[in-house]
Design a protein around this nucleic acid. Structure first.
Lengths: 230, 230
DNA sequence: CCACATTGGTATATTAAATATACCAATTTA
DNA sequence: TAAATTGGTATATTTAATATACCAATGTGG
């Protein structure tokens, strides 16, 4: 058994942090002392992590100024820095696995979901409509929506399984611009899921979630996206 | 972020180790120095882990003699010692999730499986027949068989998802005695899966794996088993 | 029954990871 | 240009984990 080094854990967190933001155009990371608070580690550990990321070419550290993100999309990350094996993962693989897990989950959720959860889903769709222009926010809400359905299934193994898939999703997600019409379509699928869950209509719920995932897959395929972790 | 303490990791490993063996009747664990080799940690770490388990009432340590397993089935384990949330997990939940994941996996595997993998599966079924009397060995081979199918799917997210399910399975599995007829039935299902995979017959493969999992569920339900981690 | 090997119990020195603090020089900001 | 902020460096301390050695109690084989 091996010790888990804290700065390696931090590197993984930072990669996820960078990947879930705008990373292309030389954005500056929070100052080292801020990162200490944010991740609750000492400055020495933060500096080790940043040094590793600079060695990988992901960061350019400028003394007295800050750490600036380099073009991460062109980098290759060594496997041991990733929590999962990304070598042979396509977006379609993730969608396929999500279909399997989420279909099973929404089937259970149709029986077990309660009024409070329905209300939460309704509020999420509302927020999604308001977040049409904020892609990052929109995707965050989308993830929350799906997680809530999984939890509503009451099946912990499915929750765990989905969490591991979500980890892939988080890392591999490259944020291309979604057109307004596509966001609109996505919101409509969520409304259909919500309506079906409310009616305890398994057939419609499954249909809606599958269509939604296939739509997501199509968008991603048509965009000129690559997995940033090759 | 917190440091991962090695002896806590070891405690989890030991719980799984104990749970996957005969733990009821005061069996003696391997000597501390053996455990050091087995888990590749120092004796100090092993002793910390054993001390924790004794505090939990899972072990009774006798100086000069060894560490003896107590009736673990009556113990409650604190959540932080478990890698997953077992509070609300039934065996049926695990089977339900496995159905979702393994059905998706075997569908892909039917297309993608190669001759080498088929041969490996064949050898596993052979070994299973030879291990009819060794329940632990039999279950180990069963797990290997299923893992190989998932890998043959070539879908890494499914592999990850299944691994998280397997973690539940490992911990929650309470080994009641399987009757010979049940082992025989299980082997037959594996042969059907193998045959269907060999013929690239998706329909039969899915049918076989679902029947197999439902059979496993029935056996477990009929036995007087409780989840040991409540 | 006895000699010897094995087992858990204890103590100690050492290594390495992570923390905590302080101070410097370069950069940024007001 | 003065003050604040930033990365760079050095050092002392704490703690997890290792590595060794030795003891007393237990177990084992002749």
């Amino acid at each position: 058994m091996n010790k888990e080094l804290l700065h390696i854990k931090l590197v993984r967190e930072l990669i996820a942090f960078i990947a879930s933001g705008k990373y292309e155009d030389g954005v500056r990371l929070p100052a080292e002392r801020k990162l200490c608070e944010q991740f609750n580690v000492s400055r020495g550990t933060v500096r080790q992590g940043l040094y590793d990321l600079e060695k990988l070419g992901i960061l350019k550290i400028k003394p007295g100024s800050g750490a600036y993100v380099q073009k991460i999309s062109q980098k290759k990350l060594p496997a041991h820095l990733l929590p999962l094996d990304f070598a042979n993962v396509t977006f379609s693989d993730i969608i396929y696995a999500r279909k399997a897990i989420e279909t099973a989950a929404i089937t259970l959720a149709c029986e077990k979901i309660n009024a409070h959860q329905i209300e939460e889903l309704r509020q999420l769709t509302e927020k999604m409509e308001q977040a049409k222009d904020n892609l990052l926010e929109f995707l965050k809400l989308d993830t929350q929506f799906h997680q809530l359905i999984i939890h509503a299934s009451g099946n912990m193994p499915l929750v765990t399984a989905f969490a591991s898939i979500a980890e892939y999703h988080k890392y591999s997600q490259v944020f291309s611009s979604l057109y307004e019409s596509e966001i609109h379509t996505a919101i409509n699928f969520h409304k259909k899921m919500l309506s079906a869950l409310n009616d305890h209509n398994v057939k419609n719920a499954v249909k809606a979630i599958i269509k939604h995932l296939e739509h997501t897959e199509q968008i991603t395929k048509s965009a000129k996206q690559k997995n940033i972790f090759v």
